[in-house]
Computed example of a mutant assay.
Amino acid sequence: MHKPPAHSRRIILRILGSTLATTTFLGVAPLAAAQEYPDKAVKIVVGFAPGGTNDILARLVAAKLQDRLKQAFVVDNKPGANSAVATDFVAKAKPDGYTLLVSSSGGLTVNPVLMKSIGYDSVKDFEPIALLGSFPLVVTVPAGLPVKSLSELLSYSKKTKDGMLDHGVASSSFQLVAETLSSASNVKFNHINYRGSGPVVAALLGGEVQVGILDSAAVMPQVKAGKLKALAVTTGKRSAVFPDIPTVAESGFPGYDVPIWTALMAPKGTPEPVLIKLRASVAEILKEKDMVDKMHAQGMDPGDTDASALSKRIASDIARWTKVAKAANLQPE
């Protein structure tokens, strides 16, 4: 067999060596990048203005990740369209682990149901990292309303002029929760929209509405002051933060379980080693006593759902809210 000239063999060997080196580099590059992650500041985007539950939780997690991973984690507030602006921004961000999303359950599971055109797909455009926490909504009434329990409220509703209760609506998510209660109990609500939980609390205190189904952080100060009454929480089990408030299920509607939750998400395509590092770090953070205490102070229970279960939960919640909206004749806008 004829051998190529010596100089040709040297060229072939150089080409083979270069190809092998390139192949090896491509194989180890993602792993090396993940081992070094993060080597610059990480942005955590929140779809609401500073001061709300999601923002507070994002800042708690950011501080913990910064301490643990020795790099800056910066919260970036992008409010608008019930968090759709921020969610869309992260869905289209470079999937390298340096742009993350702290999202309410509404942003991921209600917006796709009640918004005609959003620029993201909650299931296809994101990688779940962790369920950060969940909290109940609280069925709340003015202190002067002559009821002491959810069952008494339902009986009271039947005595009103139209057989309906004026319900202060803080968000589309909360309205859907109210509709699940309506479906379970046959109570009828006349929904009155307000610009957030604070205005609904003011409406309850002023007697403008008879009931509000609201986040615990908004109502509990007034409940403790004796100006509002908390009749039930919407989670399947009693909140560790408010153990004296019965659940809707305990109040005569077995199986009722409608929590509000907050999750940490990354854009689809984020390298798996980066996701593994983030998931492990957040899982450990959510077990730290000071973190648990701070979350309880906000009326939240720390999350305990892994990424796979969170992904299934997002899909199942979208299906659930689709049925609720259809039954209530709520049309996408």
Score class of each variant (00 low, 15 high):
73 F>Y: 13
314 I>L: 06
109 T>M: 11
274 V>I: 15
223 V>F: 03
29 A>K: 15
244 D>M: 09
325 A>L: 04
126 F>N: 04
36 E>C: 08
320 R>Y: 15
88 D>H: 07
316 S>D: 13
277 K>I: 07
12 I>C: 00
158 K>Q: 15
181 L>M: 13
172 S>M: 08
150 L>H: 05
4 P>S: 06
118 I>K: 04
112 P>S: 05
170 A>Q: 10
256 Y>G: 01
236 G>V: 11
256 Y>A: 04
178 A>E: 15
17 G>C: 04
93 A>E: 05
251 S>D: 02
15 I>H: 06
79 P>R: 08
331 Q>L: 13
186 N>K: 15
198 G>T: 15
44 I>R: 03
62 A>F: 03
231 L>E: 08
249 A>M: 04
184 A>K: 09
67 D>M: 11
298 Q>P: 00
132 L>N: 00
157 S>Y: 01
46 V>S: 11
288 E>I: 08
19 T>F: 14
48 F>H: 12
304 D>I: 08
62 A>D: 04
46 V>A: 09
178 A>R: 09
131 L>M: 14
238 R>V: 13
214 L>E: 15
63 A>H: 08
245 I>R: 02
47 G>W: 07
231 L>D: 07
269 G>Y: 00
169 V>W: 03
320 R>S: 08
111 N>F: 08
21 A>W: 07
138 V>E: 07
287 K>F: 09
267 P>E: 00
169 V>L: 04
201 V>I: 13
123 V>N: 01
106 G>L: 10
59 R>L: 03
269 G>R: 00
70 K>Q: 14
239 S>Y: 12
273 P>F: 03
85 V>Q: 06
192 I>A: 03
273 P>G: 03
78 K>R: 15
104 S>L: 08
128 P>S: 05
235 T>W: 02
183 S>T: 13
61 V>E: 05
164 M>A: 13
145 L>E: 10
306 D>C: 06
100 L>T: 00
213 I>Y: 04
32 A>L: 14
38 P>H: 02
47 G>T: 05
199 P>I: 11
77 N>R: 05
64 K>V: 02
100 L>Y: 00
284 E>H: 08
43 K>R: 12
280 A>C: 04
249 A>Y: 03
28 V>W: 13
99 T>G: 00
289 K>H: 13
23 T>H: 06
249 A>C: 04
97 G>Q: 05
34 A>G: 14
195 R>P: 00
